[in-house]
Design a protein around this nucleic acid. Sequence first.
DNA 1: GACCAGGCACATC
DNA 2: GATGTGCATGGT
Length: 222
Amino acid sequence: MPPSDNQLMTFYHILLESFGPQHWWPGDTSFEVMVGAVLTQNTNWSNVEKAINNLKTANLLTPEKLNTLSPKKLAELIRPAGYFNIKTRRLQNLVRWFCAEYDAQIKCLQELSVDRLREELLSINGVGRETADSIILYALEKPTFVVDTYTYRVLSRHGLIDPESDYEQIKEYCEMNVTPEIAIYNEFHALFVRLGKDYCKPRPKCENCPLRSFEHTIQPQY
DNA sequence: GACCAGGCACATC
DNA sequence: GATGTGCATGGT
């Protein structure tokens, strides 16, 4: 059991106090979360919302319908999310697997272990580590820590991880140090994103960053 | 006009 | 194994 008073949990409490709960993942159903996880790859969420709204308006946001929709039509609808040709393939790869292997039943996926889910999701072309972990945590509500560019940026800039760390190493560091509760994994990742959007950009905007006044208490490990 | 966004697969060395 | 590149829209 990770200690509850380490530096990473201090980060968590500061961020939660500063920003409040983020209410993630923004989506009405588990399937919508799965779709959003692919659409948001390297893409601003506001663009993803447009694409998802297009699918909803066309009444096509179901596994069965997306599975049989023509790639051309799907690409047209998700155009606002960018990379629409490649995301069409990726989305249909995911949906095809979901329909063929699990009868499009979220419940069937939820019966699997995190390790098994991760293995299967990662075998789908177009589903990488962050997308897989996002689906497992936010769509299936199982405990896996989601790492993204913001997580990397925040932790490496504050010296808590080796800047050479890869995805799995950062994930392991987080899971070793964060209280293993789904609600906390959920909130923490969302807070990392919030912090990243507001302050921890490629060009940092550290003025008024909630972590700034606590900087002196952080003991860099790297 | 430049920069950035809740990645990923693939080519090439 | 590591590094570089294509994919694309839309907001700031």
